[in-house]
């Protein structure tokens, strides 16, 4: 490690230690466990800045924050899995003594041999750790894949296929009472006749041409080709909108972090 790197690291550490002390002094009298609270805020600020420092270039602070995040989240999910799945869902149905031990609400009378099936399948899944008997875990995997596929197949078919088809059955002439009525009621409000009509036409043409674009059994030439071309435009507009929304989302997250830094850490009144 270079000497300058060490100096910078030491400097930053001192800076944040100072920040902790100042924060603790500021919080004293306002909160009970002010030293702990000040540490948490300062440490969060340090981690936020460490991650943001990647925008300048890769550095040890970023690496530290990233590794800490990876490690903590792995441990968090593991303990969460144990406490919410095994202790939360299984033990209350399995044994009263264990429920008392783990301090969870026992579900009396619900005991049934079928709750041992997931226990066995779960144990089989752990066989993945064995080099020679790893193949046994495929039974559990097959069960997971099979049930999920079955469950999702029906739900998706209903919600994403049948219901979505019927959602495209829209009146192309909304509230049509002749041209006289149409022209006398022209307004540009979102619930106005003209806008509704345009929206419905867009849905109809967009869905139709989008499907045509993803039709692989026919060469895209002539009329079909033109429809597919329109389809790709519709797709591109959708992606554009999606991109715009993503930018909005990312900026929101940045605003969230910056607000944290200025308000919670530096104590600005915003």
């Amino acid at each position: 490690m270079k000497k300058t790197t060490l100096i910078i690291m030491a400097g930053v550490t001192v800076l944040f230690l100072l920040s902790w002390i100042i924060k603790a002094l500021a919080l004293e009298g306002m909160q009970e466990d002010y030293i702990k609270k000040a540490f948490l805020v300062t440490f969060s600020a340090f981690l936020t800045l460490s991650i943001l420092s990647f925008l300048y270039r890769d550095n040890p602070f970023y690496k530290f924050a990233e590794h800490l995040f990876v490690g903590v989240s792995a441990a968090f999910w593991m303990s969460m899995g144990f406490w919410s799945t095994i202790v939360g869902n299984l033990i209350p149905r399995l044994s009263q003594n264990l429920s008392v031990f783990f301090k969870v609400h026992y579900i009396p009378g619900d005991f049934n041999f079928r709750f041992y099936i997931p226990v066995i399948l779960g144990l089989l899944l752990l066989m993945r750790l064995s080099r020679n008997y790893g193949w046994i875990s495929r039974w559990s995997l097959a069960f997971i894949v099979g049930t999920t596929a079955g469950l999702n197949f029906i739900r998706y078919l209903r919600s994403d296929f049948i219901k979505q088809i019927s959602a495209t059955f829209v009146p192309l002439l909304v509230d049509w009472q002749g041209t006289g009525h149409f022209f006398s009621n022209l307004d540009l409000s979102a619930s106005g006749q003209l806008v509704m009509m345009l929206a419905n036409w867009t849905i109809f043409l967009g869905v139709m041409s989008g499907i045509i674009y993803f039709f692989f059994s026919k060469e895209h030439t002539g009329m079909f080709g033109r429809a597919s071309r329109f389809g790709i435009w519709v797709l591109m507009i959708t992606f554009g909108a999606s991109f715009g929304y993503t930018v909005m989302g990312r900026i929101s997250l940045l605003v969230g972090r910056i607000t944290f830094l200025f308000r919670d850490w530096l104590g600005f009144n915003i």
């Binding site: 209903r158 049948i162 219901k163 088809i165 019927s166 495209t168 059955f169 829209v170 009146p171 192309l172 002439l173 109809f204 869905v207 139709m208 499907i211 045509i212 993803f214 039709f215």
Partner: peptide
């Protein structure tokens, strides 16, 4: 299946525009 969707969509649009509700009822789950 996509071709079927296109056909059903056109039929559904025709049905809703001429107020033939029996066809639309088919898609009610």
């Amino acid at each position: 299946a996509k071709a079927a969707v296109i056909v059903l969509m056109i039929l559904g649009l025709l049905a809703i525009n001429v107020h033939l509700n029996a066809f639309i009822e088919i898609f009610k789950v």
